[in-house]
Design a binder for these strands. Structure first.
Lengths: 229, 229
DNA sequence: CGGATTTGTTGATCAGGGTCAATGAAGGCG
DNA sequence: CGCCTTCATTGACCCTGATCAACAAATCCG
């Protein structure tokens, strides 16, 4: 595997807890892999033999009913961790929604390594606790919010998670979503039509601009916050 | 604090990872506390200065919108762990829904102890990963399932989690829910009326019996599984 | 550049589940 | 024991968001 020390997510991924010598060891176990948009890494219900760090790109975690309805239950960004340490099959599938680059480990090897490196395990625990908090706020959205509240909440969260990179010129208060409308619908527990109508309405009301399919510009943050409930 | 070695959840809680001498140390930090039904331990948004093991009783984790709509985002049973290690305020409130007995620790003290005891931390990580999986399956239910599918799924999960204690005579395939109808509605993202109607319909269709308010007897497990989607 | 395909928008209609309201059944407590 | 409070059920009605369908706009490629 190529050099962990120069890894783009070196300081943000769980590896940040490791010393250079430990990193070298872990690095030998891992291997980089590019996956193209749309590719599914892990299937719901199958045994998940790998875990990974995301270096680049965005992936989705999808749970589905027997008759094919889909709910996105997690969104994975660079520096996030994928997979299910400590055995068990994956309770959801994992697919790339943009071209992505991963740093993949065999689960068993990773588990073993983690057991010997408490700091790594603590990083993983912190991350998992954060994910759990996020999932639970999301449950409130899915269970109790109206379509307009859902879309407003979504835009605010995305603005927060996507427009942060400090290098970027945030002159434009805009950002580019890594999702299409159907995926947004699958995140919010709505249909694509309702989602689209909400976007249209928000634009008509002047809350946002939609300069292109995936671009969002927020005009009235306060109103959006109000709307999110 | 009283004796950890004779604790009812000794072998099921995260403490199971500790040796007797370690247990003694942790035991000195903790204190038992009874809480009565309805009492709220932690409030959403407030700093959460404590973590705890549940010895007895059932608690709920509740997230709410500004205007008071509530969604139950977690259910806590004996041997489960409560609270948010590693700082931060609690993103949901925690209330007892039956009389309960807890084993409470100061968060900072607990964090410190955990940092020195990797096995404990691993147990906590496993538990948290399990909770995250559960939360995600729950998201599918909230976002994509119909009222009847929600209630069927709920009954199946409760049958699984509640009727298991091996000592109990499972002659009757029945079990007693620790929730009232409103709480079930808050778990499923429904209103109390819809929930009630679904129960009534299932009884009319012979799938279940309702010998008393909180008792459930499952007559047709296969049909219920079918219905859960 | 231009046809084909995918993705998004808009409209019309419908139904699942919410809301409001009344009644009934349990459980609590003096 | 019997009143009172809480909790659950049932009914009537309505509204949000789903469904079905047509069309428009990007994007993909040869």
């Amino acid at each position: 595997m190529t050099d962990c020390l120069s890894c783009i997510v070196r300081n943000r991924a769980i590896c940040a807890s490791l010393r250079p010598d430990e990193l070298l060891l872990l690095g030998r176990m891992g291997r980089r892999q590019r996956v193209s948009s749309g590719h599914t890494l892990l299937w719901e219900g199958d045994d998940a033999p790998v875990v990974a760090n995301v270096l680049e790109g965005v992936l989705k975690l999808v749970a589905a009913t027997a008759d094919g309805r889909e709910q996105i239950v997690g969104i994975v960004f660079p520096s996030d961790f994928i997979g299910r340490p400590f055995g068990k099959e994956s309770p959801y599938s994992v697919s790339a929604i943009s071209a992505a680059e991963l740093c993949i480990f065999h689960r068993d090897q990773f588990d073993e390594f983690a057991a010997d490196h408490p700091d790594l395990q603590q990083k993983l625990l912190r991350r998992t606790l954060g994910e759990l908090d996020r999932a639970r706020r999301w449950m409130l959205l899915l269970g109790r919010k109206s379509a307009s509240e859902k879309v407003a909440s979504f835009l605010l969260e995305m603005a927060d998670r996507l427009s942060s990179p400090p290098g970027a010129a945030d002159t434009a208060r805009g950002f580019e979503l890594p999702f299409g409308r159907q995926q947004i619908a699958d995140i919010l527990g709505l249909t694509i039509e309702t989602t689209s109508r909400q976007f249209t309405k928000m634009r008509a009301d002047g809350l946002i601009d939609l300069p292109s399919r995936r671009k969002i510009v927020i005009n009235d943050l306060a109103a959006l916050n109000e709307m999110a409930g």
